[in-house]
């Protein structure tokens, strides 16, 4: 398949992931939607790498994976700490910084 298809699929997955971030209230599910968006970007990178014929896109996708893993570690640790303090994993519960 030509890279256009892969990139289009990446776009679709990215948008679905973005909607998920906006609509879900559970912090973990939001995190997972962010992972989905990252994966869609990875797909786009790999598609462009195959288009150009060199491996730079794959290297970048590799780095993206590494960074995503580190981010997940820290993010989930933060989530645990917040849950311990508030007994709630909903992002809507932290709404005091308002007008």
């Amino acid at each position: 398949m030509s890279p256009v298809h892969y990139v289009s699929l990446a776009v679709i997955l990215f948008v679905i992931g973005a909607v998920g971030v906006l609509v879900r209230r559970n912090a973990i599910v939001i995190f997972m939607c962010v992972e989905l968006m990252l994966n869609a970007c990875n797909l786009a990178f790999v598609a462009f790498a195959s288009m150009h014929g060199n491996l730079d896109g794959q290297v970048i996708a590799f780095f993206v994976m590494v960074v995503a893993a580190a981010e997940v570690v820290v993010g989930l640790a933060i989530l645990m700490a917040i849950y311990r303090a508030r007994r709630s994993a909903s992002v809507d519960d932290a709404n005091l910084l308002k007008y």
């Binding site: 398949m1 892969y6 990875n42 790999v46 598609a47 790498a49 794959q58 996708a61 590799f62």
Partner: peptide, 10 residues
């Protein structure tokens, strides 16, 4: 899909 695009390691 990565495998299909010639990125088996990935």
């Amino acid at each position: 899909m990565y495998a299909m695009q010639g990125a088996p390691f990935l």
